[in-house]
């Protein structure tokens, strides 16, 4: 098995993850383990960072394999920015880049969107709707954490609960 983090060297260190009692494991190479100082008594933050970074590494490896060719060719007609350059610097070239690279920045945009967002500009938050939205936000983050640690059983529970709450909210809106 290769290191789940760098994907370059064989994995020979097993890191035990325990997030709120949910246990799982990650396998990384010596060098990565040394760099992050997580061989002995790692801090909670170090563990969390590791879990997140492995997920990000997976995502970018998957992407780089499947759509590499199509993406590399993409170019913004307004400013000449290429996807290659964007992937290197994470800086867009102009306003139109948001449309030119829309499908590629989608995961980024999702990561900064408050879950269960009600369009902030067009709708004034209603007082009795607020607890609902906060609850959904919390559930979504819990769901995300479950998926991260591959706890699909609990993830399913949260997913159903979110669907339930969101359905309830829509009904309420239609009624009003």
């Amino acid at each position: 098995m290769m290191c789940q983090l760098c994907g370059k060297r064989p994995a020979n260190v097993c890191i035990n993850i325990d997030i709120n009692g949910n246990k799982s494991q990650r396998f990384i190479c010596d060098k990565c383990a040394d760099e992050r100082k997580i061989k002995e008594n790692p801090s909670g933050a170090a563990i969390l960072a590791l879990v997140n970074d492995i997920r990000a590494a997976n995502l970018s490896r998957q992407q780089s394999e499947s759509d590499k060719n199509e993406q590399a060719e993409r170019i913004c007609k307004s400013c000449g920015m290429t996807y290659k350059e964007f992937a290197k610097t994470f800086m867009l070239g102009c306003e139109d880049c948001y449309e030119s690279f829309e499908d590629m920045i989608k995961p980024l945009v999702e990561s900064i969107t408050k879950p269960s967002a009600v369009s902030a500009q067009s709708e004034k938050p209603q007082n009795d709707a607020v607890p609902d939205r906060n609850q959904i936000l919390k559930l979504k983050l819990l769901l995300k954490q479950c998926v991260e640690r591959e706890d699909y059983e609990n993830a399913a529970k949260f997913r159903d609960k979110i669907a339930e709450l969101e359905a309830g909210k829509h009904e309420a809106k239609n009624d009003g």
Binding site: I19, N20, S43, A45, I47, L48, L137, L142, Q145
Partner: peptide, 25 residues
């Protein structure tokens, strides 16, 4: 070693906690 737990709780409030001076965590 109490920061990991706090980091998780803050994430639930839509906030990030990271070192201001230093490297990584």
């Amino acid at each position: 070693n109490g920061l990991g737990k706090l980091t998780e709780r803050l994430a639930g409030e839509g906030a990030n906690l990271k070192p201001f001076f230093g490297e990584r965590d």
